[in-house]
Computed example of a mutant assay.
Amino acid sequence: MTRWIAALLAGALFGAGLALSRMTDPDIVLAFLDITGDFDPRLAFVLFGAVATTLIAFRPVLRRPGPLLAERFQLPLSHAIDVPLVTGALLFGVGWGLAGYCPGPALVGAAAGVDTAVIFVAAMIAGSLLQGATARRRPA
């Protein structure tokens, strides 16, 4: 139960940060990507805050013997830059640039009842199911 409460609080904090910074508004994200037009630098400050937090906290947290509410840290086992990784990153970037949403802000927007976010989340779930189905068909 403690893990569920911690996850709920972390998600609420993340969602509140996204809403406070207005990163749930796709127009702000798209304005950041529009470097030759109506450029809006706000997303750069959000990105800087995330990177700074990671730089400060990541190593000290990993020096702990384990996480507070789990048996072990779950870190990627592979450091390979392969075709699926690059393809996924390209699709993510194109989708983000076209829609102005990435998963976190889209979920916050959908929870708030924003129609474009609800459509995005539905498409995201469909894409996840499609990826899962195709991944099961590919040899490991």
Rank of each mutant, 00 (worst) to 15 (best):
A57E: 11
F32E: 04
W4T: 14
R22A: 13
R59M: 02
Q74R: 15
L8G: 14
T36Q: 12
R42V: 08
V29Y: 03
F45Y: 11
R138S: 14
R59I: 06
M124R: 02
R138T: 13
G11E: 08
M124Q: 01
R137H: 15
L130M: 15
D27T: 13
F120I: 01
Q131R: 08
P84C: 02
P103E: 13
A52D: 06
L75T: 02
T2G: 02
A19T: 10
G17S: 09
R72H: 15
I5C: 01
L55T: 01
R22W: 05
Q131A: 15
A89W: 12
Y101H: 07
G66N: 00
H79N: 12
A16H: 06
D115C: 06
F48H: 06
V114I: 09
L18M: 14
A123Y: 07
T116N: 04
T116M: 02
F120S: 05
R64L: 11
S21V: 11
D25G: 08
A52L: 15
V94F: 06
L130P: 08
G97D: 02
V86N: 00
S128T: 15
F73P: 03
H79P: 03
T53S: 12
V108K: 08
P105T: 09
V61H: 00
A112Y: 09
E71Y: 11
P41R: 01
A133V: 12
D25Q: 14
A140H: 12
G49M: 10
G113C: 05
A135T: 11
F14K: 00
V118R: 10
A112V: 01
E71A: 15
I28M: 02
T24M: 07
A123P: 04
V118M: 04
P76E: 14
C102E: 11
L43T: 12
I28H: 03
A133N: 11
D40V: 05
P26H: 05
G104I: 00
L91Q: 02
D40F: 03
D38H: 06
I125R: 07
V94G: 06
G132K: 05
L69C: 01
I5Q: 00
A50E: 09
F45V: 08
G49H: 07
W4P: 02
A110R: 10
V51N: 02
G97C: 04
P67Y: 03
R136V: 10
A140C: 13
V118K: 11
P139N: 15
G93L: 05
T24E: 07
L13D: 03
L20A: 15
P67D: 03
W96S: 02
T36Y: 09
L98M: 13
D27W: 05
R42C: 01
M23T: 05
L85M: 12
P26A: 04
P105C: 07
G109Q: 10
V86W: 06
W4S: 15
G127H: 06
F14L: 14
L75C: 00
R59Q: 04
V29Q: 01
R42Q: 04
I81Q: 12
P65C: 06
T53K: 06
L130V: 15
L9N: 01
P41C: 03
E71V: 14
F73K: 05
T53Y: 12
M1Q: 09
D82I: 10
V83I: 11
G15T: 08
R64A: 12
G93Y: 03
T24A: 11
P103D: 08
G66E: 04
A99M: 15
L91D: 00
R136G: 05
G66A: 09
D34Q: 05
